[in-house]
């Protein structure tokens, strides 16, 4: 039985597409068969992050409208045998398909794949409704910022109202240096506010920018973010993986000055 996962956030730019690409690639690396569906009709980007933008002929809307067969719209990944992408249409808008059509499309993909991952558009309108329609599991991506958390909270309410059975949280772009200085909310702060089970914590990592530039997901590669995404995949597959301790990556100087500040703070108190 395949698992249908929607990656959503409410707010734009928090890392939905990056998370979708890396989770999909990571699961494929673990030997699973995966299809990534870009549900962001009109503003597609998953193809670019995956480096598959030059291979698009047909898209999701073509399949739904019957302009092509299902298989014709599935783009095989460059690196992983079991990984496919179904791109969104770029010249159409979100209102051109319905939740019922999405459910039908997802059902037709269930026989072939272990995981169906939907990259949800930002917002709470039709595009969101389409993306969550066929999902039984949601990954809510947020960053430790007021605006992203507020939107995530709204999305969680909507997911619950739509009876999505399982909702997990991924906290993206965590900066340990800021947390150390008390200038960023911690993982526990975010969990305290949103009250969701934690699926993963991804540190802010320049390698994500580099990987996106190159169109190659960084999951499983040497970087901190790559490792964090791979851990998310392992947890999705049911393995128990401890959360990474990012403080280990802090330079000696940061540690020293942190210690100095702490002792001064204690003196003040």
């Amino acid at each position: 039985m395949s698992e249908v996962i929607v990656v959503t956030s409410g707010k734009g730019g928090v890392g939905k597409t990056t998370t979708s690409a890396n989770v999909g690639t990571g699961l494929a690396e673990m030997g699973k068969s995966v299809v990534l569906i870009d549900a962001d009709i009109g503003l597609r980007n998953l193809d670019v992050v995956m480096g598959l933008e030059n291979r698009i002929v047909y898209n999701l809307v073509d399949v739904i409208e019957g302009n092509c067969r299902l298989k014709q719209a599935l783009i095989k990944d460059k690196r992983h045998a079991g990984l496919y992408l179904m791109p969104a249409a770029q010249t159409r808008d979100k209102n051109c398909i319905t939740p019922e059509q999405m459910i039908k499309l997802i059902d037709s993909l269930k026989e072939q794949f272990d995981y169906i991952i939907l990259d949800c558009p930002a917002g709470i309108e039709q595009g969101f409704q389409n993306a969550i329609a066929g999902a039984d599991h949601a990954i809510v991506v947020t960053t430790p910022e007021v605006s992203a958390i507020r939107d995530a909270d709204r999305i969680i309410g909507l997911l619950e109202a739509n009876e999505i059975k399982r909702i997990d949280l991924v906290i993206n772009r965590l900066r340990h240096d800021l947390i150390r200085r008390g200038e960023m909310m911690t993982v526990d702060d975010v969990l305290d506010i949103l009250g969701l089970p934690l699926l993963g914590v991804v540190p802010d990592d320049e390698n994500v920018v580099i990987a996106t530039n190159q169109g190659e997901p960084l999951v499983g590669k040497g970087s901190m973010a790559g490792q964090a995404f791979y851990n998310i995949c392992k947890r999705l597959a049911g393995k128990e993986v401890p959360f990474m301790d990012f403080s280990k990556n802090v330079t000696l100087w940061a540690r020293f000055s942190g210690l100095f500040k702490k002792s001064l703070q204690e003196e003040q108190a």
Binding site: E145, V146, I149, R150, I179, R181, G182, E183, M184, M185, T186, D189, I193
Partner: peptide, 11 residues
């Protein structure tokens, strides 16, 4: 700290 401000505002 701005962390605390953010948390209070969000709540």
């Amino acid at each position: 700290t701005s962390r605390q401000i953010a948390k209070d505002r969000l709540k």
